[in-house]
Amino acid sequence: MSYSVGQVSDFAGVTVRTLQRQLDEEIARLQRLAEVAERAIEVQKTGVPLTPQERFEVFGEVAFDLSYATEAELKWAHSDGQREAMARADAHTKEDWRRLMGEAAAWRAELLAAFDDGEPSCGERAMDLAEEHRLHIARWFTSCPPDMHRRIADDFVADPRAFALVVPPSQQRPGLAAYMRQAVHANAGRHADVDTDGEESR
């Protein structure tokens, strides 16, 4: 099969237009990422000042992954919960972060113990731990109804960076992220008819 010069030119035009559209979309995406990264840097510069030693004392092995944070910011950009969580996190003092991370570390130890003891993910102990995690988010960041908690737990399995914010890689076990997800889903089912304030849904 042969093509005329005009047909080749038309094909080339379509290819160039498609490429241009893809490049425009990629440029727009990178610009959004740059804006989010710039915001994160500004928060670090104007927020709670921490030396490297203080940062380790407060956060331990829990690492803040900027690439995950920027993607999460874009994914939930229109979410009231995301905006509230960012605003409350920005307002936390160094002491707030110490208390928050201490609470998280105690909870994490209980989660690992339950997992290592072979407790079923749909059992009372695992579901209670899932409920504690949900209330921790509500206490420090944003209200977290069961459906929202399910979506958060789904990310634990879908994206290792999300679960690393909860359990550092050095403390993880094979299957732990899935275990946590199953416990969250079981707990959400247990509280399906109850809202975050403990009142029956209307």
Rank of each mutant, 00 (worst) to 15 (best):
M1N: 11
Y3I: 04
V5L: 13
S9P: 00
F11I: 06
G13P: 03
G13W: 07
G13R: 05
V16K: 08
R17M: 12
Q20A: 15
Q22I: 08
L23Y: 11
D24P: 00
D24E: 09
L30Y: 08
R32G: 00
R32P: 00
E35R: 13
E42R: 14
E42W: 11
E42A: 09
V43Y: 09
K45I: 02
G47I: 03
V48M: 04
P49L: 06
P52H: 11
Q53D: 15
E54S: 02
R55W: 03
F56Q: 09
E57R: 08
E57F: 01
E57K: 08
E57G: 09
G60K: 00
A63T: 15
A63M: 13
F64D: 14
D65M: 05
Y68I: 10
A72W: 06
A72D: 13
E73Y: 14
L74V: 11
L74Q: 14
L74Y: 10
A77K: 15
H78T: 15
H78M: 14
S79M: 15
G81C: 05
G81A: 15
G81T: 07
A85V: 05
A85M: 10
A85G: 10
A87H: 12
A87T: 13
A89K: 10
A91H: 13
H92P: 09
K94N: 05
K94T: 07
E95N: 13
E95S: 10
D96R: 00
D96V: 02
L100E: 07
M101T: 04
G102P: 11
G102N: 12
E103R: 10
E103H: 13
A104L: 12
A105P: 07
R108Y: 04
A109Q: 07
A113I: 01
A113G: 02
D117I: 00
R125S: 06
M127E: 08
M127P: 03
D128I: 00
E131W: 12
H133W: 15
H133C: 14
R134Y: 08
L135V: 10
H136Y: 12
A138F: 10
A138L: 05
R139T: 12
W140K: 05
W140M: 09
F141G: 02
P145D: 15
P146R: 00
P146M: 03
D147P: 01
H149P: 02
R151T: 13
R151F: 11
I152G: 06
A153R: 03
A153D: 01
D154C: 03
D155Q: 12
D155H: 13
F156Q: 01
A158K: 15
A164Y: 00
A164V: 07
V167E: 05
P169I: 11
P169F: 07
P169E: 14
S170F: 01
Q171T: 03
G175M: 06
L176D: 01
L176N: 02
A177F: 01
M180D: 07
Q182V: 09
A183V: 06
A186M: 09
N187K: 01
H191S: 03
H191A: 06
A192N: 10
D195G: 04
E200Y: 13
E200P: 02
